[in-house]
Simulated scan of single mutants.
Amino acid sequence: MEVTLLGTGDTTGTPTPGCGCETCVEARDRGVERTRFSVHVHNERTDRSLLVDASPDFRYQFLHHETPLPSEILVTHIHFDHLDGLGNAYRLLSDAPVHAADETDPKTGESVHETIDRKYDYLDAVDPTPQTPFESFRACGFDVTLVPVDHPPLVCYGALVEDPETGASLALSGDTSFGIPARSKAVLAGADLLLADGIVPAHLSEYHPLGGRHEDSEGTPRTFGTKHMTVEGARSLAAELDVGEYRIVHLSHFIPEDEAFEDDMAVDGERYVL
Rank of each mutant, 00 (worst) to 15 (best):
M1P: 02
M1E: 05
V3T: 07
V3K: 01
V3N: 00
T4C: 07
T4R: 01
T8H: 03
T8E: 01
G9I: 02
D10V: 03
T12P: 07
P15K: 06
T16N: 05
T16H: 08
C19F: 04
C19Q: 04
G20D: 12
E22Y: 06
E22A: 15
T23N: 07
E26C: 06
A27K: 01
R28H: 09
V32L: 10
E33L: 10
E33W: 12
T35M: 10
H40L: 09
R45Q: 12
T46W: 04
T46N: 05
D47T: 12
D47W: 04
D47V: 09
V52R: 01
F58H: 05
R59Q: 14
L63Q: 14
H65I: 10
L69R: 08
L69I: 09
L69T: 05
S71H: 02
I73Y: 00
V75K: 02
F80P: 15
H82D: 11
L83M: 15
L86G: 04
L92G: 00
L92M: 07
L92K: 03
S94Q: 15
P97V: 11
A101D: 12
D105E: 11
P106Y: 04
S111N: 08
S111P: 06
E114Y: 03
T115M: 11
T115W: 01
I116V: 15
Y120I: 05
Y120K: 09
Y122S: 13
L123T: 07
D124V: 14
D124C: 13
A125F: 00
V126C: 08
D127E: 14
T129A: 08
Q131Y: 05
P133L: 03
F137E: 03
A139K: 00
A139L: 01
F142G: 00
L146R: 06
L146G: 04
P148N: 08
P153H: 07
V155S: 10
G158E: 01
A159Q: 00
G167W: 05
A168T: 11
A168E: 13
L170C: 04
L172V: 06
D175M: 13
T176S: 15
F178M: 15
I180V: 15
A182H: 14
A182D: 15
R183T: 14
S184C: 12
K185R: 15
V187I: 15
V187N: 02
A189N: 11
G190T: 09
D192W: 09
A196W: 00
I199Q: 08
V200I: 13
H203V: 06
E206Q: 12
E206P: 02
E206W: 08
H208Y: 13
P209Y: 10
L210H: 13
G211P: 03
G212Y: 03
G212P: 04
G212Q: 03
R213Q: 15
R213N: 14
H214Q: 14
T220F: 05
T220W: 04
T220K: 05
P221K: 12
R222K: 14
F224D: 03
K227C: 14
T230R: 07
V231S: 06
E232L: 09
A234W: 02
D242C: 09
Y246P: 00
R247G: 01
H250I: 15
L251V: 07
L251C: 01
S252N: 09
F254H: 13
F261E: 09
D263K: 09
D264R: 10
Y272R: 13
